[in-house]
Write a protein that binds this DNA or RNA. Sequence first.
DNA 1: ATCAGTTTTAACCATTTGGTTAAACTAAAT
DNA 2: ATTTAGTTTAACCAAATGGTTAAAACTGAT
Lengths: 200, 200
Amino acid sequence: MEAENTEQKILIAARQVFLKKGLAGARMQEIADMAGINKALLHYYYRSKEQLFRSSFQDLIKQMLPKVFGVFRTDLPFEEKLRTLTADYLDFLTEYPQLPVMILSEIQRDPQLLFNELNIPDLVDFQDLQKQLDEEAEAGRIRPMQVFELIPNLLSLLVFPFAAKPIIQNALKLTDEQFKDFISSRKLTVPDFFMNALKP
Amino acid sequence: MEAENTEQKILIAARQVFLKKGLAGARMQEIADMAGINKALLHYYYRSKEQLFRSSFQDLIKQMLPKVFGVFRTDLPFEEKLRTLTADYLDFLTEYPQLPVMILSEIQRDPQLLFNELNIPDLVDFQDLQKQLDEEAEAGRIRPMQVFELIPNLLSLLVFPFAAKPIIQNALKLTDEQFKDFISSRKLTVPDFFMNALKP
DNA sequence: ATCAGTTTTAACCATTTGGTTAAACTAAAT
DNA sequence: ATTTAGTTTAACCAAATGGTTAAAACTGAT
């Protein structure tokens, strides 16, 4: 998190502020203060708030997507894919717990935002995954399952607890540390739960 | 959605705008326009933007919570509870698909918001539910399961698809109507998935 | 018809906010 | 030493925005 050049300092500060407050709620002054620079310098490096937001957003998404979908491009057995993805994704989100809400709310505001820059089918070959599922089902190891049911269910189980972090923490009276433990426990319980749900 | 008195018109308009843009993104002028009234009239009825937001937010939450948690106060068999809650909750969220993101992002901004006004343990008696789970497990109908694992998993499966609606719609190329069908199919697949995951 | 209370409006205000400008500083290249 | 390019700042600006005010219009009771 240390400062290198000014551009980096700005990006890091912007990320922090945008993650917490979103595009509309963020103030250029706050970002400048957090980066320890003058507000005009923001506009020198990134012409507008919108542009700074996009850079910061893009940066995060580019970090995120390979970790979410990368494992789908390997030829690991299905259960391995599931366990790897779960652990990697939960680790990543633990670093940026506010990311899901920020992404979801900005996409609600501007649905184009995400898809102008990246192509999800490019990242996950749904058909390949479906083929693997069909094979597993054929072999009697899991019950028949559609990717379009499986993927939303899996992402739900992985992402939602972060989106609902304040609610969970309050309802269960967890400190930040305890919340991390809660998430950590899910690296096992979620794949277990999931594999059980897939049993024939 | 029809106008009764001005106060109602304002609340309805405010709800629409806040749902779409959140507190920071909403403009008083836009709310006034949508309600077909003058901006000053907003301030006559609701002193400030913050207060209008709270009223609108409160209103929605009060509608939502009984539907989410109400069934936990009945003495239905566990699987019945699960299926009832799923159907009711999915129906409710279908009416307000943007609600989850709005709630989650405003709570991230101000974690107090939700809990100042309502007490979740008052709505769900976790211990009662745990007892029921223990009984089901004892009888060999499900495997042992903690409420604190079950509830987050269930809410994840129910809420997340709405939060990710634009992503799902784009990735799967669904119209609004097809998205509703997708959600509707989950009234069966989610409880099925869930009950299967709970099998001993 | 009039009066009191409520509702509605147009005009206005102060502050905030994103963004600009022009000048000063720095360090490397010539 | 001077030029040049990049970096940083203080001071400003125009527009947007939440909020106020005072007066007009409406309503229902007397």
